[in-house]
């Protein structure tokens, strides 16, 4: 029973990180039609910022804020410098651009910072576990869980009740018509990227706290998972992306916890198989709309 609950927490924590990343990807994709392959590098930037600010003896909370800020600024800059010039180009052009941005950033991290993992020591008050009943839950995991939930709730509120959020949702659905409402395209792009940068930054904090080190390629893997989550959730659906992230986290943890050890090497193949099954049953993804009408 304890194992089950603990693994449920594991699944939520891992899925939550995927969900944050997937949401950022889906947001940019639905507004700009851009599959941002450089999303993982935003995560890495946030992680490096955390590393350096801790190294330079900034107070920890300031390092956290700095890391998030760095990811947001990097995202906005990325849009402004790399993606705005190709905004009207074909999807393939944008995809290639983002691929180039990703490669350039990885090489830059390797050459300007270090090709090797750099250790990030979390302060001791974040270490260890807390007892909840008969359960021992890691402090960081608990925090990640709480923050993810709070952030998602905050986003629900923003998307539902603020002018910015409603405009984002509208733009995700129909970009041109949103402009016809007098909402500035540039503001939408900048907003989408800033938000995706923030989400990547938060995910980076959790990821680094769990991982203990930062390296130039660290963003690749979680963002790959987030892509899968976006597809499972339904390309273009924000709620779907979040659901896809949690589903993927649950599948991964369940397979690792339940598979007999001689089948463990196949867990990645099996988890992809489950994903394909989901897509066979629902080709448009969990929450995907079937594209209909004029567009």
């Amino acid at each position: 029973m304890d194992i089950l609950i603990q693994n449920l927490i594991n699944a939520l924590a891992l899925g939550g990180t995927y969900a944050l990343l997937a949401l950022g990807l889906a947001l940019v994709f639905s507004i700009m039609g851009l599959i941002n392959l450089a999303h993982g590098e935003l995560m890495t930037i946030g992680a490096y910022a955390l590393y350096f600010m801790i190294l330079w003896a900034f107070p920890f909370w300031l390092a956290l804020v700095g890391a998030l800020l760095c990811a947001v600024v990097a995202a906005v800059l990325m849009e402004r410098v790399a993606f705005r010039p190709v905004r009207d180009a074909s999807m393939a052009t944008m995809l290639l651009t983002s691929f180039a941005v990703s490669a350039i950033l990885q090489v830059a991290y390797q050459n300007l910072i270090s090709p090797r993992p750099l250790p990030v020591a979390m302060p001791s008050f974040l270490g260890g576990a807390v007892e909840i009943g008969s359960l021992q839950v890691g402090m960081i995991q608990l925090l990640a869980l709480g923050c993810t939930a709070a952030l998602l709730l905050l986003l629900v509120w923003v998307f539902r009740y603020t002018a910015f959020g409603v405009a984002m949702r509208a733009a995700a659905e129909d970009f041109d018509t949103t402009r016809l409402m007098g909402i500035r395209a540039n503001a939408l792009f900048a907003g989408a990227f800033a938000l995706s940068g923030l989400l990547a930054g938060v995910a980076a904090l959790f990821w680094v706290a769990q991982r203990g080190s930062v390296d130039p390629l660290m963003g690749f893997l979680p963002v790959l998972k987030a892509f899968i989550a976006v597809i499972v959730g339904g390309l273009g659906s924000l709620v779907g992306a979040v659901a896809g992230g949690f589903l993927l986290g649950a599948i991964e943890i369940a397979l690792r916890a339940l598979l007999p050890s001689d089948l463990l090497p196949y867990r990645d193949a099996l988890s992809l198989l489950l994903i394909i099954l989901v897509l066979l049953v629902r080709p448009q993804g969990l929450m995907g709309r079937r594209r209909e009408g004029v567009r």
């Binding site: 002018a163 129909d174 018509t177 909402i183």
Partner: peptide
């Protein structure tokens, strides 16, 4: 977005309402 601010607005072909938004939210936009 600039032209809308100058006082000319289009009701596009095929309506193009934001289906995932409420009526009120559409109006708000």
């Amino acid at each position: 977005e600039k032209i809308v601010r100058l006082g000319m607005t289009l009701v596009p072909e095929g309506r193009r309402v934001f289906g995932g938004l409420t009526v009120e939210e559409n109006l708000r936009l």
